[in-house]
Design a protein around this nucleic acid. Structure first.
Length: 227
DNA sequence: CTCCGGCGAG
DNA sequence: CTCGCTGGAG
């Protein structure tokens, strides 16, 4: 007896493929190749636990005056704080950004690119050793600054993945990643990352999900359980 | 585990 | 008013 409230696809890999296909028809998520690795890292730090609008404001303020690792390494903390305030968590982020600038200058010849040239595992390990850089941020840099096939797991990814039934409610981001990644075709991890974020922002929202309008509600076990 | 935090939606 | 936002550190 299958659950007729949603399209039953026994193979979860097939269901993921269907979901990607439907979401691609709904959203265009051509991620612009970000050529500047250090600014990619800066943007990622600003985005931590911060919505995209506020991230964008802070990033625009900041990059009108600071662009190179040297700029950040020599920055006045209070000035950094003022520029990035819209992002929230601005005191810790300002200190993180200055430390990151100094690390790039002192330990990597002034270029984050020197770290990213290494093998993916090595690069990830070194990113994780940097202040203010955890799993999600490290993966974002690997994805957006050097096009690696990785799947950064943020709150949107966690929430949508759990609601879609690919992970359990109490799974932490690492567990979500371990369960979702094997279901995603090679080379499509960055794509599904962006697609699930859009899904989370537009439909599968934390507070008031709009399942009735969701483009993949026929592929979701929550169909009929939420309004 | 708690803390950091401006900001907008509901 | 509360909640959550492309989290990470102590």
């Amino acid at each position: 007896m299958g659950d007729k409230s949603f399209k039953v696809i026994s193979d979860e890999k097939s269901r993921v493929r269907e979901i990607i296909k439907e979401l691609e028809a709904e959203f265009q998520v051509n991620s612009p190749p970000r050529d500047h690795p250090f600014l990619t890292l800066v943007r990622t730090v600003l985005s931590q636990n911060t919505n995209s609008r506020n991230t964008e404001r802070a990033y625009d303020n900041l990059t009108s005056e600071y662009t190179s690792p040297k700029d950040f390494a020599e920055a006045d903390i209070e000035e950094l704080e003022n520029l990035i305030r819209p992002a929230g968590l601005y005191r810790s982020k300002a200190r993180t950004l200055r430390k990151l600038g100094r690390i790039i200058i002192d330990e990597h010849e002034g270029y984050l690119k020197e770290v990213l040239k290494k093998s993916q595992n090595k690069a990830r390990k070194e990113l994780l050793e940097m202040p203010g850089v955890g799993p999600k941020s490290a993966d974002c840099v690997l994805l957006f600054a050097c096009g690696r096939d990785v799947l950064p797991v943020d709150t949107h990814i966690s929430r949508t993945t759990k609601r879609l039934g690919f992970a359990d409610l109490d799974d932490d981001p690492e567990e979500v990643k371990e369960k979702l990644e094997p279901l995603v075709p090679k080379g499509e991890r960055g794509k599904i990352h962006l697609l699930l974020i859009e899904l989370g922002r537009e439909y599968c929202k934390a507070l008031a999900p709009v399942c009735g309008e969701c483009p993949i509600n026929n592929l979701c076990p929550q169909k009929g359980k939420r309004y």
